[in-house]
Design a binder for these strands. Structure first.
Lengths: 239, 239, 239, 239
DNA sequence: CATGAATGAGTCTTCATTCAT
DNA sequence: GATGAATGAAGACTCATTCAT
């Protein structure tokens, strides 16, 4: 009985995920108002009416899509950021992750800004964005605690530099149909470094941030540094 | 006769400006699809049909609104930037101007993305946007010519930092309902400084000694990486 | 004063004729509902509002166009039919005239059937058509009086054969983009002959109706017969 | 399952027929442009939007109505014509059938002219109309083959006499609110007879002796004409 | 539960008609 | 009288949502 119910539950959630995926795609490609419920249904391989068994109306579906996007993004970011790395490495990992996410799902991010309607829903959307942003905040705060980063820098300004630059860079890269990030993350990290690192520590960063050369295997100094920092953390943990 | 024709022309342009203003407001507050032509007409104090004497259809009106916004923005920017100031001061003036414009008309900027020729003309930007961005480019290029700024920095990345940061800051300031810019421009200028000022001129920053990644011993990154991965595995086994 | 008033009157009527001509063309080419008042105005070289100084509304204008067409057609028919010719020649003249009129203004005739709206207006239209048809009737009645035509044949049936055949032939000729009438009138006259001529007199007609050969000057036996009949009439009148 | 699908299909076709019937009525009574989609929907007992589930737009619906009319007419005509009768009897059967159809649905025929591809596909007739006319052609061609009818008579002219007369007669009968055909078909058959029956078979008609227009003396029509014109002038001077 | 046919409110757009200049 | 800008009623068409099967 429980198993059957679980199976049902699984089925339900699979359908739900299926609808969200379909809706994400259609919303992203045609825009909120350009997306017809029938298009979403077809994309999901369902009948129109079936959508309404899962979501009360189009706006609810949009909210779910946006909510799903941010929670997935948040989960992905947590995996992408090595908890043992030092704050700067983490920031770089986050930047890299965020940029790739934007490149892959740029249109979906835009939907967030367009979730009009009730104020309450808008606030709920913002809450989810805040959850995502908290990852950034946590990294920086940890950096400040450790003394690796300046505490006098206003956090939200660092945030806007970080996310604003990444979003605009993503747009530019998309327009250029560029495949690699073309040094965007490196550049950003240098900028963030100057913004966040206390003057006394700044020399340590420069080499890492500036070097972007790589050999044919695509392994950069950055990759090595990350690895080393990871090892360092583990050794610390051991002792 | 000429006077009468001029008066006519003036009337026409006044009405046109009136419509653009009304449409800007309605588009901004309700979004493109949320804005009804009759709402715009009422806002402009006109009958619905009258709009169509000035603009062929809704999309044309949107294009006009966005085009008008950017050309006004460009005109304002030219006034805001002192041609005799040095490039960095100019950049600061531009940043300040841009931020204020965003704070005042944040929603209109968002419309830009909808005004593009939907799929038809590929992703052709509005000419007016290019014109506006050219102001930033001109300042930086002049800085490079004068030797005040680095020529090796990629222009578009500087641009994305500049505009991305300002746009996200504007959003934040709007959410906080802040009245002043709370140091956003100052901070941005610091960041832009580090990004654009040649090492020789930076006094508060260590020279960015670039350590070349290739070494004479023929040891590649790949070799190092393999070694490190081996170490990592051993450590995992230990813990 | 009278002269000036006459001049005014002339001007007015000239404008009126101008509007009718313009409206005829636009109505004919685009259909009643497809014709926009502004198109008619432009075609007439006038402003939209000016049309309303001459005709209360679009329907009135249509009525005027149709009325004008039929009265012109009637007037033209009276000129085309030689009053001294014998009834059969007259019928042939009328057929030839009617066919050419149809070929030239086929679309306008169609407008007649479409003058919807008030019953009264419809009746008025029909009256004008009746005026035109009376020419046919008069010819046939005269033929009957003279004993050239049968009185037992129902007049309206002869009329429907006559006009129905000509209208359908006109349509066919138009579709074929034929320039000449391709024997339509000759054929029709033969048909009308068999329908209207008393058996006893039928031999007289056959040659005339059948011969359609002509030399390079385009003069047919028909032409000669007409001429001769005209002369015959005059001689009768003299004696 | 198959039954259910068949039922569905039946329902669909019933609805389709229902819509066509409703549209026919409204189009016929109010004209194409006078017919509002909502009127047709109401007449069919449906909501406005439902029409669009069956026909893409108003013009498609019109085309369907006209197409349906002609194909029904064609089917009816095939039933009305006895395949074993002789060509003349068949023609009479067709005439009688056509006239009655016109009396019943006169307005619908008029719609045909509007259903053509407006300017776009040049003047492409509806295939259904061609199919209908083919019935007439087949009868006449069979008559010619059998030797019952003349092969020298132009088919299209016979067609125009036939259909033109019937259409105009129908109009007349409708205006007179006549119930019977009042001899229209009989009369038409007489006319068609004279037009189509070979001279050898006509007993009530003198042989149509054709006098050739060219004579051996080399006197042309032009010569005669000039002579006659001279006589005419003299006569004018006399009177 | 799933379906998809039916619904009808909502919108853009057109164009006959008016009227201030 | 003439103009043509302004009007707003009207209508084709779309699409989110419902509900009988």
């Amino acid at each position: 009985m429980t198993t059957s119910r679980d199976t049902q539950r699984q089925k339900f959630e699979a359908r739900e995920a299926n609808i969200i995926a379909a809706a994400s795609e259609v919303f992203a490609s045609r825009g909120v108002d350009g997306a017809k419920m029938i298009d979403i249904a077809r994309q999901a391989g369902l009948a129109e009416g079936t959508l309404y068994l899962y979501y009360r109306n189009k706006h609810d579906l949009l909210t779910a899509v946006v909510g799903h996007f941010w929670s997935e993004l948040t989960a992905g970011a947590r995996l992408a950021v090595d908890p043992h790395a030092d704050p700067f490495q983490q920031l770089e990992q986050l930047a890299s992750y965020h940029l790739n996410a934007l490149l892959a799902q740029f249109q979906v991010v835009q939907l967030t800004y367009r979730a009009r309607g009730t104020e309450s829903a808008h606030v709920r959307d913002l809450d989810q964005v805040r959850g995502y942003v908290r990852i950034f905040d946590a990294i920086v705060e940890r950096g400040i605690d450790r003394g690796n980063m300046r505490g006098d820098a206003t956090l939200w300004q660092a945030r806007d530099i970080f996310y604003g630059t990444l979003e605009f860079s993503a747009r530019t890269l998309t327009l250029r149909e560029a495949s690699s990030d073309e040094g965007v993350v490196d550049n950003l990290m240098q900028v963030m470094g100057h913004h966040l690192i206390p003057a006394a520590k700044r020399t340590d960063l420069a080499p890492s941030a500036v070097t972007s050369s790589s050999d044919a295997q695509g392994i950069t100094h950055k990759d090595l540094m990350e690895k080393l920092n990871g090892l360092e953390e583990r050794l610390k943990a051991l002792s």
